[in-house]
């Protein structure tokens, strides 16, 4: 065992140790003395970000994620990262985690908060900690897209079943009719509001009348709702006409008015306005049919409007004084 061999053994060990140490530091992204500042951000969850991922500002890498820990309180994830000293952050900086590529590597980007107005960021307790948000990763997006496409499929199928040429025409004319009715209703209400100058004795009766009218309206709208199934456009239109007649008759009965009733009238008017607005929406777009089909909330909204009307009338029935004050004196 001569000296040279001994020295060589030592040399090999030292070289291996140095290579390992330098290699690990390098691969971990050591800065080799470049000054950096440590920062922290909190997240509801962090997706697939891991320590060592890039921290970017305007697309340029300025640092790396160092450590990810769950906050002791359990409701937040704390991510510590280092960025180069002297990097100026935007106003109200937030950290957004997102996939860097499609292959599972993530990044942390620093953005001004204003770029994400609709994202709800967790509010950090400490002043120097940034709020952060993890964007859904590709798998989540795929899942959502999947769901949407499934719904579309169901919808398309239903449309295919319900809509023949005839029903389409019927609905088109129905919509024209509904518009008419609504215009009539609106003018009627205006007339009523003007002519209600006195309190009538049969206010109660009147409200009941409105109630039944509203019921009728509800039935009518339900029928609209069910139109796709039942081919009763004709009778629906008759119903609407009847309803309008009813209301007109009602207004004739009510020959008195006061201020409170004016308010009631305004409310009724706004309700009808809503219905009208809805119908306008139906009208708009490509011949309106497609739009009706693409807005599943439409029927609900119509129904909601009627419900509102009914509630209003029920309220009038129960607390007429709130709306109508007897001015006998």
């Amino acid at each position: 065992m001569n000296r040279t061999r001994e020295a060589l053994v030592g040399l090999v060990i030292v070289v291996a140790a140095v290579v390992t140490a330098v290699g690990v530091l390098w691969l971990q992204g050591a800065t080799w003395g470049r000054p950096q500042v440590e920062m922290e951000a909190v997240f509801d969850e962090v997706g697939l970000v891991r320590s060592g991922n890039a921290v970017k500002l305007r697309g340029v890498q300025v640092g790396r994620v160092r450590e990810i820990t769950v906050d002791p309180a359990g409701d937040l994830v704390r991510v510590r990262f280092r960025i180069d000293e002297g990097v100026t952050l935007p106003d109200q900086p937030v950290v957004v985690l997102s996939p860097e590529s499609l292959f599972g590597d993530w990044q942390a980007e620093i953005h001004p908060r204003t770029r994400f107005p609709r994202v709800r960021f967790p509010e950090p307790r400490e002043a120097d900690v940034l709020p952060g948000h993890a964007l859904p990763d590709i798998s989540q997006l795929t899942a959502a897209a999947d769901e949407i496409s499934e719904t579309m499929l169901v919808l398309t199928e239903r449309v295919g079943i319900a809509f023949s040429e005839d029903t389409a025409e019927n609905i088109a004319s129905l919509i024209d009719n509904i518009e008419d009715v609504t215009t009539q209703l609106a003018t009627l209400v205006e007339q009523q509001a003007a002519s209600f100058t006195e309190v009538t004795d049969d206010l109660r009766q009147a409200t009941q009348g409105i109630g039944s009218a509203a019921n009728q309206a509800r039935v009518t709208l339900e029928r609209v709702d069910g139109l796709l199934a039942r081919d009763e456009v004709e009778s629906t239109l008759q119903d609407l006409a009847g309803l309008t007649a009813n209301l007109r008759g009602l207004s004739a009965e009510m020959d008195g008015t006061n201020r409170e009733f004016r308010e009631l009238a305004a409310q009724v008017e706004s309700t009808f306005a809503k219905v009208e607005g809805m119908l306008e929406v139906v009208e708009a777009g490509d011949g309106s049919l497609g739009r009706l089909l693409h807005d599943p909330g439409m029927a609900e909204e119509m129904e909601g409007a009627v419900t509102e009307l009914q509630l209003l009338l029920a309220d009038i029935r129960e607390n007429p004084r709130r709306y109508v004050r007897l001015s006998i004196f």
Partner: peptide
């Protein structure tokens, strides 16, 4: 020595 040799081999 195995880890030493392995470290060199990896590098």
């Amino acid at each position: 020595m195995f880890p030493v040799v392995t470290a060199l081999a990896i590098a």
